[in-house]
Simulated assay, not measured.
Amino acid sequence: MIGLAVSLVAAAGLRYQVTSAAGELSVEARIAAFPDRAGELSVEDGAEPFVRDVLVLTADGAVPVERRGDSWFAPDCAARGCRIRYRFALREAAAAREDEDLAVLYGEIVESPPGAWLSPAEGTRFVAGLPTGPLSASALGGLPYAAFGDLRVERMPLEGGSLNVAVAKARRRQSDEELLGWIRSSAALVARYFGRLPADGALLLVLPASGHQIHGRCRGTGAASILFFLGTEVDLPEARRSWELVHELVHLGFPSLSRRYLWAEEGLATYVEPIARARVGELSPE
């Protein structure tokens, strides 16, 4: 979830172990020495009120870390590296903030982009479009969407890769098999347009919405993931007529850009979506 990250460090030796229980995350991190004399540790903006009991773990026991403002300061960690532990009130953050870039509660599903590697407790499903291999500290804030809860998770092999699909359980007008079939055909036509799936191993997280809503968001930093909302009243014919899922999948083929250039991201997805669908007969040339 929101991993405690060393500020002002482009590449650091960070290793996280995170467990979840009773709506909270218990985070333990090993931090290598880093060039910040004050030893400042920080979280994403808005996450600070939900970080609790930050401790440095030593051979002699646990030592509380001083908090000043929105940061914690551990000079000894900066000088020699250290092992820290803290709690993150995940469910409380989701209920209080309702921010998809921090944490949101959808029924019993908690969605939150992770800033650490997560090892959930027994009985809890966790999905994330995490990249493989080591990460720099600067990448933690941009990691992909993720969720805990009662999820059906499917790996869809496609041309040139696979798409990981996680569907939150809900009462819908379409069955799970119909929903997954629509997702598979939409992803296949995008893979056909590009010649391969643009982002192998990307995550598509499908969450329920009210009525006939269909909309989504794509994150491409850290790794690729899509947060997709599908109204519980949407039946299969309506889903097949919609453009939003293909639009979001097309985003996987274009890098995330700064706000100044969002027009290019949206422009490409808007341009490609009807062409890709027309090529497989989902739309007429007109």
Results as ranks from 00 to 15, higher is better:
residue 217 R to L: 15
residue 90 L to C: 05
residue 59 A to Q: 11
residue 110 V to C: 07
residue 177 E to C: 04
residue 242 S to P: 00
residue 271 Y to L: 02
residue 41 L to N: 03
residue 50 F to H: 04
residue 18 V to D: 00
residue 90 L to K: 10
residue 169 K to S: 14
residue 223 A to S: 09
residue 174 Q to F: 15
residue 60 D to G: 11
residue 155 R to L: 13
residue 65 V to N: 08
residue 66 E to C: 04
residue 229 F to I: 11
residue 243 W to P: 11
residue 179 L to F: 09
residue 202 A to C: 08
residue 251 H to R: 09
residue 9 V to A: 12
residue 268 L to A: 06
residue 286 E to L: 11
residue 151 L to G: 02
residue 126 F to R: 02
residue 270 T to F: 09
residue 18 V to Q: 01
residue 166 A to L: 08
residue 81 G to S: 05
residue 140 L to A: 09
residue 224 A to D: 08
residue 209 A to T: 04
residue 134 P to W: 02
residue 267 G to P: 03
residue 268 L to E: 05
residue 145 Y to Q: 10
residue 202 A to T: 07
residue 187 A to T: 11
residue 190 V to A: 01
residue 285 P to E: 08
residue 143 L to R: 00
residue 215 H to W: 12
residue 214 I to C: 06
residue 112 S to L: 09
residue 24 E to M: 10
residue 15 R to W: 10
residue 118 L to Y: 03
residue 116 A to R: 09
residue 232 T to N: 00
residue 205 L to F: 11
residue 257 L to M: 06
residue 112 S to Y: 09
residue 143 L to E: 05
residue 277 R to M: 09
residue 28 E to H: 09
residue 135 L to G: 08
residue 79 A to T: 13
residue 178 E to W: 15
residue 272 V to L: 06
residue 78 A to W: 03
residue 271 Y to C: 01
residue 103 A to H: 03
residue 263 W to S: 05
residue 86 Y to M: 00
residue 115 G to P: 10
residue 189 L to P: 07
residue 46 G to Y: 12
residue 32 A to L: 10
residue 11 A to E: 15
residue 118 L to N: 05
residue 44 E to K: 12
residue 30 R to E: 07
residue 103 A to L: 04
residue 211 G to R: 04
residue 128 A to R: 03
residue 170 A to L: 06
residue 191 A to F: 00
residue 177 E to V: 13
residue 166 A to V: 13
residue 177 E to P: 07
residue 160 G to M: 12
residue 257 L to D: 05
residue 116 A to E: 01
residue 16 Y to M: 07
residue 12 A to Q: 01
residue 124 T to V: 14
residue 143 L to S: 01
residue 118 L to M: 15
residue 77 C to L: 12
residue 90 L to P: 01
residue 156 M to G: 00
residue 113 P to M: 06
residue 224 A to I: 10
residue 143 L to D: 02
residue 126 F to W: 14
residue 16 Y to H: 00
residue 10 A to H: 11
residue 163 L to M: 08
residue 206 V to L: 10
residue 158 L to D: 08
residue 108 E to A: 14
residue 244 E to R: 04
residue 184 R to S: 04
residue 100 E to M: 12
residue 286 E to F: 14
residue 46 G to S: 11
residue 145 Y to E: 04
residue 264 A to P: 07
residue 28 E to L: 10
residue 234 V to I: 08
residue 265 E to K: 11
residue 263 W to R: 01
residue 137 A to R: 01
residue 283 L to T: 07
residue 45 D to H: 14
residue 181 G to A: 02
residue 176 D to Q: 07
residue 241 R to H: 12
residue 174 Q to Y: 06
residue 183 I to H: 00
residue 239 A to F: 08
residue 135 L to M: 06
residue 42 S to T: 14
residue 132 T to N: 03
residue 46 G to W: 12
residue 123 G to R: 03
residue 182 W to E: 13
residue 49 P to E: 02
residue 107 G to H: 12
residue 263 W to G: 03
residue 168 A to W: 08
residue 69 G to E: 02
residue 252 L to M: 05
residue 219 R to S: 15
residue 57 L to M: 04
residue 129 G to N: 06
residue 161 G to H: 13
residue 145 Y to T: 01
residue 223 A to W: 02
residue 233 E to V: 12
residue 94 A to E: 13
residue 165 V to A: 00
residue 102 L to A: 02
residue 142 G to Q: 09
residue 248 E to V: 05
residue 159 E to V: 05
residue 20 S to G: 15
residue 118 L to E: 15
residue 217 R to I: 06
residue 251 H to F: 15
residue 197 L to E: 00
residue 40 E to L: 15
residue 174 Q to E: 14
